[in-house]
Design a protein around this nucleic acid. Structure first.
Lengths: 213, 213
DNA sequence: GAAAAGCGGATAGTATCAATCCGCTTCGTG
DNA sequence: CACGAAGCGGATTGATACTATCCGCTTTTC
């Protein structure tokens, strides 16, 4: 990526990697709101070191998330290669949601990408047509009801990630329950329902996650 | 509410009302994050005046939202009085979501009430059993599938308000489209589907609402 | 072993917001 | 109508949170 000129000194290269690792972890667990200072301390290096390697947080985000988006694109590619359009549809969105469960930063970027992130926006516009095709294929195939558009599926994921963010601590997989309900609403043949895979939250759990501090 | 002792001077009473009106509007349109300074300026009074009437923002929130929650409780009460359990179910949640569409502050309080708001929490625990009963009644009645719990419906609303928050500027009613899909997934008799009431968002609209600043 | 490269973290700069204080204005009662 | 009480405005202080730099010291490299 950045190998122009200056070959880094051994300790500097090691610290750079530590910073990337720390940033990956913190973006995933806390979201993109973490500061470069947080990242530096978590990496066990001084703040100065962080700022010498990366001018600011944006640069770090661009460096790390191109790879994440690449994974999404790969999953979409694989879905398009699957001969079964409905399985492909379900599997892709499950995978997509799971990636977001494991990386809050990814969710923030897909639901709310600041325009300044060129790379991120380029990846988004690369992925969008693949998602549309996954959806259209499931419709053509007769498994997905035809009055649903790809944009609806996108908003479904936005809603589900909001639920995910609340329930993550208490029942990380809960969102799959609502995803199953959505699938039952999306299916062209409504009688082909399957059982919900995960249990509901109890009233106490619900109360807990809707009450702060 | 606060009529203990001191009858306010005429100008003071007028300013107090202006502050309440401004707060109502700003909480509804911007959410609870607005500052007392914002509210004071929007009311056309000085900051000092705001702080003389209300010790802090919390006090103002308590004063205003007890009424809002009362409206939710009333809607639930009316739903429980409706002889048709499914209509009651659909109508209540539509009304509940619409109230949230019109008041971001309400959404913030129901999805994330800070524990310090005693009144708000009291109202929430007053409303919760009514919601449970609306859901249970629809199940007993044979219209709502029996593997769904009231907590699932709560999380549905949390997801839908997240969608609402993104689409409000571009197509305020869009969330109803996903609500309809949910209803199709929730119905005990899946063949009784109805058409989606609102159109999808275009790709451009979707791109617009998932891109910031 | 000397120069270059890198390091740490104290610190300066910036922004946002809560809350107060006090000189001035308005109210309303005698 | 005058005068004391009540109210007013908003500049200002203080707290918090974060960004980014600077410089004396350390490590690497040749």
């Amino acid at each position: 990526m950045t190998d122009t000129s200056a070959p880094l000194r051994k300790d500097a290269a090691r610290n750079r990697q530590r910073l990337l690792d720390a940033a990956t972890e913190l973006f995933a667990t806390q979201g993109l709101g973490v500061t470069l200072n947080d990242i530096a301390h978590h990496a066990g290096v001084g703040v100065g070191t962080a700022y010498r390697r990366f001018a600011n947080k944006e640069e770090l985000i661009e460096a790390l998330f191109e790879e994440r988006f690449r994974e999404v694109a790969d999953a979409a590619q694989r879905a398009l290669a699957d001969p079964d359009a409905w399985t492909a549809f379900v599997t892709f969105f499950e995978r997509y949601l799971q990636m977001q469960l494991q990386d809050r930063g990814l969710t923030e970027l897909v639901t709310n990408a600041p325009v300044r992130h060129e790379k991120v926006n380029r990846m988004r516009t690369e992925i969008a047509p693949m998602i549309t095709e996954i959806v259209e294929r499931a419709k053509r195939d007769g498994h997905l009801r035809t009055d649903i558009e790809a944009t609806d599926i996108i908003f479904m994921t936005i809603g589900l990630t909001a639920v995910m963010d609340r329930t993550r601590q208490v029942a990380p997989d809960y969102y799959l329950r609502l995803f199953d309900v959505y699938l039952d609403g999306f299916r062209a043949e409504p009688s082909k329902r399957t059982a919900l895979r995960v249990p509901p939250l109890t009233v106490d759990q619900t109360h807990e996650v809707t009450t702060k501090s």
